[in-house]
């Protein structure tokens, strides 16, 4: 199917058409912060502000707190009830390329390693409509990780800003099906295609933060035992969970039961390897010193994940850099590490 376009003025109508079929999520600032929220049927304010949401869209598939099952004591055994899933089809509109990429990275854990019964059904029921960035932040570095601000690799349908309109490209069959569900889309012209191409090239150049990722896995391996280095790197970290909880590729969770008399619920909730009490429940945290925790976070993304899955578990979204209350910066960390390893 050829590419199409949509006038920004008609976005609400397009979303309206899709929302007949899907539960629709859009980037929203409704609750005081930028995150993905259910569409209220009219809000298109993201057209004016949408850059990077604070809470990543992973929260739709892997929410901060999620019921796993409830249980009721029944004589000598327990009766277990799984949460009901309505199988509702979902559409995420306006997901950024780095966040879509993060979902592909999360799939390695939640789909390829084992089949996570909470994440997967939602993931399968969801179509992703990507929206390319036009104004990357100074914290963004997706281009250092093989991405680009307008990359369509991990979405079903891709939108590129071409002024008063968006160019609409069908990427997968699911995406092309979406195109046929609305009569708001017009045929794209040659000129539109050219403009889209120009925008893509120009935006790519706007990502100024660079990280050299060549041989990074090996370098991290050789830096692993340099305690001084990691102590220096970790010094200012305060061990909060911001960088990890808000990272679109972090997936650690904690499990808790809540009991009242003979019935209860089991929940899972976001956890972070930055916390001193991480894994304290089954045993001790093997990483009591802060530098070990900071090292783990960096190595998990840039060494262990590539070892296991051939892909760096970082998309360069820059959230960890921008949201950290002490401006701990993963790119500076990796630069410092590389300099140290190179100097021997």
């Amino acid at each position: 199917m050829a590419n199409k376009k949509i006038n920004k003025k008609n976005i609400a109508k397009l979303l309206g058409d899709w929302s007949k079929e899907f539960e629709l999520f859009i980037p929203s600032k409704d609750e005081g912060i930028a995150k993905f929220a259910k569409w209220d049927g009219k809000d298109t304010s993201f057209l004016d502000w949408h850059r990077n949401t604070i809470v990543p869209p992973k929260a739709i598939f892997f929410p901060p707190v999620e019921e796993m099952f409830s249980f009721q004591k029944d004589k000598q055994s327990y009766h277990i009830e799984l949460p009901s899933s309505d199988g509702q089809k979902q559409l995420i509109f306006g997901i950024r390329p780095y966040d879509a990429n993060a979902l592909t990275i999360l799939d390695k854990t939640f789909k390829d390693t084992y089949e996570d019964p909470y994440y997967l059904p939602k993931r399968k029921n969801t179509v992703l409509v990507g929206l390319g960035c036009t104004k990357p932040y100074d914290s963004c570095f997706c281009t250092s990780l093989g991405g680009s601000p307008t990359d369509s690799a991990n979405v079903d349908l891709m939108l590129t800003d071409i002024g008063d309109e968006f160019l609409v490209e069908g990427v997968t069959d699911k995406g092309r099906e979406l195109m046929s569900m609305s009569s708001e889309l017009e045929e794209a012209t040659e000129a539109d295609e050219t403009r889209a191409k120009e925008t893509k090239e120009a935006t790519y150049q706007k990502v100024t933060r660079q990280l050299d990722t060549k041989d990074i896995e090996e370098k991290l391996l050789s830096s692993f035992e340099i305690q001084d280095l990691w102590e220096e790197i970790a010094a200012k970290c305060i061990s909060c969970g911001i960088c990890t909880l808000l990272c679109p590729t972090c997936y650690c969770f904690d499990i808790n039961d809540e009991l009242i008399k003979d019935r209860g619920t089991r929940f899972r909730s976001w956890d972070s390897c930055s916390f001193p009490v991480y894994t304290k429940m089954p045993m001790e945290n093997p990483r009591i010193e802060k530098w070990r925790r900071v090292r783990n976070k960096v190595c998990h993304k840039y060494e262990f994940y590539p070892m296991n899955f051939d892909v760096i578990a970082c998309t360069g979204c820059g959230r960890c850099v921008r949201q950290c209350p002490v401006n701990w910066d993963i790119t500076q960390t990796l630069e410092k590490m590389q300099a140290k390893v190179q100097s021997g």
Partner: peptide, 14 residues
């Protein structure tokens, strides 16, 4: 307000 707290504990850590 507290419905969006993610328990990052940054308020406590800082």
């Amino acid at each position: 307000e507290f419905s969006r707290c993610i328990r990052c504990y940054a308020c406590r850590s800082i």
